[in-house]
Design a protein around this nucleic acid. Sequence first.
DNA 1: CGGTAGATTGTTCACAGGTACCCTA
DNA 2: GTGAACAATCTACCG
Length: 832
Amino acid sequence: MRTADLTGLPTGIPEALRDEGIEELYPPQAEAVEAGLTDGESLVAAVPTASGKTLIAELAMLSSVARGGKALYIVPLRALASEKKAEFERWEEYGIDVGVSTGNYESDGEWLSSRDIIVATSEKVDSLVRNNAAWMDQLTCVVADEVHLVDDRHRGPTLEVTLAKLRRLNPNLQVVALSATVGNAGVVADWLDAELVKSDWRPIDLKMGVHYGNAVSFADGSQREVPVGRGERQTPALVADALEGDDDGDQGSSLVFVNSRRNAESAARRMADVTERYLTGDERSDLAELAAEIRDVSDTETSEDLAKAVAKGAAFHHAGLAAEHRTLVEDAFRDRLIKCICATPTLAAGVNTPSRRVVVRDWQRYDGDYGGMKPLDVLEVHQMMGRAGRPGLDPYGEAVLLAKDADARDELFERYIWADAEDVRSKLAAEPALRTHLLATVASGFAHTREGLLEFLDQTLYATQTDDPERLGQVTDRVLDYLEVNGFVEFDGETIQATPVGHTVSRLYLDPMSAAEIIDGLEWAADHRTEKLRALAGETPEKPKRDRSESDNEPGGFQRASEMVADDGGGGGGDDGDGSDGADDTDGGDGDADAFETDRTYPTPLGLYHLVCRTPDMYQLYLKSGDRETYTELCYEREPEFLGRVPSEYEDVAFEDWLSALKTAKLLEDWVGEVDEDRITERYGVGPGDIRGKVETAEWLLGAAERLASELDLDSVYAVREAKKRVEYGVREELLDLAGVRGVGRKRARRLFEAGVESRADLREAEKSRVLAALRGRRKTAENILEAAGRKDPSMDAVDEDDAPDDAVPDDTGFETAKERADQQASLGDFE
DNA sequence: CGGTAGATTGTTCACAGGTACCCTA
DNA sequence: GTGAACAATCTACCG
């Protein structure tokens, strides 16, 4: 089918496609159009990556918009949202407006309801539905990218429920689901009442094979000799071979998939020695520049290692990298500057990075639940191999698995090359998934009875797949019970209503279990405020700590919220009986609670960080060897700060989790204590990207905690807000004002503060030379910052940093040493 | 013959990923 | 289950 023959698209689009060089549709695309894609028919397209899926989506969305509708494109990853947006924006000149909405990024300008195409993550869409976004019912077309991810244990149910809700809101909605080639695409199509287009067709051939001995044997029967010398490894030989070029002599890039971050880094180090041999002089200098950019992103060992590899033409790629690192690497690889990337599976799921050759080095991965090395799913390996073949550059792509012996070779052929991908199976009927989605379903009014809920759930993929219709009902009952016990829903006969808190929890997008934990923690803090403030002020209770925590039989995280309401504060409550006994006969005359309040905040930041870190919405840090002792000790040291009863070291299985949460909380405390990034990465064995991740999650959860605290009318709102702000900026209390200025991060804020510029107001008043000196003479930066602070005359012309007063030189102000001392304390005190 | 750098072998250790709030001055 | 990092041991070669 020719693009010129397409009908139903906005004026000019077929011509524009022709100008892009798209005259003829690919077979799967043509099939989709014949199935009614441009007439509003729902469709499941199960086709390989890079075989024109995006155009299928575009044809559906554009024709829908041409009929006066509005389209939504659901992506699985935030990084993909911006990629898709950039792609769709080429239609802007034909009057199509594109908007993006993700957790950390929202299109500015007009509101999303004015946009024709909106790109969002599934979670964001879910959240928008929960918050009744006005434009939801205007949707006429929704595209679900990578719909096979409904199989994902954590995030699949969200996609599934969201699609069900969107279809319920608008029964005529056109649903276009794009999927990898999975076993049971037909079932997905049945679920969505959609036509199925299934195809293995690829615009660029993919040759899959296994390397063993001195050659790769491909599935098509051909062989390619790739000798491996004695003591040499297979992967570098394959990377070098690709770089040697094929018949056309064109240099081929390689993508190497391994099973751990460390392996990615060490493999990249080795590959760098290979790629280095194939660089031209120009490439060397471009790479040196790129390496410098990478070093600028973050001052950490990871950053340095990456820069070193990149300078030689190779790179590693995993989630420990900062987002900027990843983008730099991906772009340079696409520009053919970087010749080889060694990556964990992140890359296979992320933005488009095609490569001449893909080497799947490790096909097993450690899995704690599984209890050892687990073979990768066929689908996952196919996704990796599908990255082979750069359109317009390679005659075909090569995907190679590695075998040590003939048996392994045969097994790999059997297991991955000849095998079809697994079926997708809904993971909805699990308690964690239903906990959050049932509450949301009730709260946003999709159902008000148990039967209504089950009827709604009947529209999900789970329902069309299950052989055990009872199961969903059972889990639903358990979950409803949980939600009621925790005060998120109320039963009135048959009807179920969300309570006000329940509504808030749903809108905040919290797992109800996280919300329960946070509420319990904050209310516990309100109940134990006086006692804990005394402990924090150094007044040791008579009884030893452990003894007290055992007698302190507060209910845990599962009790009714109604039982938790703070008592009238008289101190006569039975629960702080032994606390006040101990505190009453301490020395000193200033033992009253009011005096504590002036110089101590409660809850403390660490207490709050720990609270949100032990929530199921926070991904906790691993406990490594030795950490158990370190954090057990810290746990006793900081015992008064925790919001809730500390589980027993000896009896409680929860203690381990408590420590992991403590380690994570401690990372956050270091972050807000202005400990250097590289110090944090070293201390916790994480990458710069992990720090950003933890910080972001903590920000979100503390924001939610703040909302809950204010709704429950708890004093801790202020402490929570401050803890959140400090996490946001990564600074101590005194820098909060400064760090709020655009262009001022934690480092610059500290430098300005040390130079005597201590607030936003100071920025407007201070001598310019002082500001300039604090910013190391960076004029442009200084101007931008002054402007952002609202200074009338930000110009730095004719200002000399050497004119700065003596006290503006950080070294002799004493602030520096004060900070260093605090740093030392933070590190030495608790660790070395 | 002792000393030492470098190679070899043995042992221990840790192991992927990443979404979500509020809001329309 | 396995690669990497580190430790312990061995080996070759030197003065």
